[in-house]
Nucleic acid binder design. Sequence first.
DNA 1: CTGAAAGCGCTAACAC
DNA 2: GTGTTAGCGCTTTCAG
Lengths: 346, 346
Amino acid sequence: MAENLTLEDIGRLAGVSRSTVSRVINGQANVNPSVRSRVQEVIQRTGYTPNVVARSLVSGRTGVIGLVIPSRVHSLFEDPYFSRLIQGISAASNRAGNTLSLFLFQNEEEESALYPRVVTSGVLDGLILTATRMADPLLARMAVGEIPLVIVGRPDVDGISYVDVDNHGGAMLAAGHLVDLGYQRIGIVSAPTSTTAGVDRLNGFVEGLALRGMPLHPDLRADGDFSEESGYQAMRRLIPHRPDAVFAASDTMAVGALWALQEAGLRVPHDVALMGFDGLPASEKSNPALTTVRQPVTDTGARAVQMLNDLVTGAATSPVVEVFPVELVVRESCGAMLASSRPRTD
Amino acid sequence: MAENLTLEDIGRLAGVSRSTVSRVINGQANVNPSVRSRVQEVIQRTGYTPNVVARSLVSGRTGVIGLVIPSRVHSLFEDPYFSRLIQGISAASNRAGNTLSLFLFQNEEEESALYPRVVTSGVLDGLILTATRMADPLLARMAVGEIPLVIVGRPDVDGISYVDVDNHGGAMLAAGHLVDLGYQRIGIVSAPTSTTAGVDRLNGFVEGLALRGMPLHPDLRADGDFSEESGYQAMRRLIPHRPDAVFAASDTMAVGALWALQEAGLRVPHDVALMGFDGLPASEKSNPALTTVRQPVTDTGARAVQMLNDLVTGAATSPVVEVFPVELVVRESCGAMLASSRPRTD
DNA sequence: CTGAAAGCGCTAACAC
DNA sequence: GTGTTAGCGCTTTCAG
């Protein structure tokens, strides 16, 4: 189990040169079978593992990809969405043979102090950036760098590779579902318009409503920040305006909104219908179970890793974009399961 | 902003040798001030950053530390506790100039396939392991390796460095609080005894009760697995036995337990008192706000990073241990704020 | 104070 | 098929 063995050591032990050992390790063709197996035996016996650092120095690649989550998103990081995204990215990264480094920047200073070091140090083959803000300063900086970059979530500038889900279409779906169910006073707890996801979900929802001749009344829009607490507060602001259905732009906010409704003695879906977005486990376990729009979080993360590796190897070139479809998940919170009778028309 | 510059390039630009440039970069003494500033100017102007990989090859250190979270803890990962721990470790790691790599193992196969590569590849200076299980196979493997290792949470074997919080003492505090408040039928929603934290909190609680001549009745113990759902289920099992106070071994489980209580029409703290453990934000925002035992999650993570770096540099040697104190946080859920009258004696 | 030279462990021509 | 050689970009003796 001793470490610190080198190619040279293995060579000596197997009676061959270091090049031959290198060849068998890298599975190259031109090696005599008997020599190959002898070398493999020694490697096996000694537990030798190639020194990745030395290998990187010559190959110019490290196999390390960075996941950066910029500052001011700490409430976001507490959103289970992020846990799942990180899990998805981690799993894909493991599968692809990458090592994942995590860069959580707590504030602007840390961001500007650390970022250059991170990107120019040569340790990273590429970067995945998530939770981008509109006009993200980090993104501006990154775009000029020569390190391969993939964004999770649509960035607000062109020419960058990204993977996203169809937020716009999903929100339209939500609007359509609520209108089809006969609701009249439909509101939204929106996500911050400082994020593209927030913008896309809001616009999609408005468009979905408009398509059915039902403009969104300004009183029936309250903005949240993706946190449960903000969903609660936003719903409290909405309640006085007597919505009969509300679309929350994230499941986490929907859960907060549900509290507010319950606190006000309003039953879901009987008095007010409620929808979420994300399809997180929490939406299923809430009471009543939330109707929501499910997005493939894990797939998104996996695709980002794959896309990045393609960029790194040159299998793909600069801006490649993929948008995953989303899916309406009808559960109890909108009354779709109830008889066709509408609970309340106000 | 061009990259790929080498020490040699900078040397040429500044009219000195690469050794001299290396000296100024590493802040060594023997450099003529004028030469030093000339070199610094060139570095500034070109935006040169040393190639970390090359540097690592000679120094034998990479500055990368790994955080490994073993398999079967996915529900755990959804616990906000983990998000906070990761944030704490990340922040400390940034501060210390380390790069943090994340290893989330999804299952045993991934664990055994990836782990050897991770630890012997030479990329990691050291490892932080968290969410260890009793008789953790990963830990057994790690102990034999020569890579510096720090555990977050008490391991069930000796001779390993770790940082923990006083789970035992905290649970005793909880028991004492409940007894002092006059409760008679005190129960526990425990954490899995396959974890040392679960064991320590359970034992501490039992001991705290026993100390006051009040053994824990077997009917009043239900086991959870740290998830909200499990807290809910455990409490449902407890309710028929009519506890008048329940200590949940984590805030997340306490929130689940709260649902079960509410669903059963029991008021907290009027009908049943409820306590948590962790001091997560969720405990404060629940209704009623949870009395809990706060542990310094961020400090724990920071100390783990520092301890690991000490081990790596040799500033400390093998088993160093630190246990942080915890603190009782009295809020509304146990009725401590109410008049001295006891709500119900059954 | 500064430069030349060796070498970290590996890969990749290039010979034989 | 296999060994020899030359680096990858850096740090570090060792001379001067």
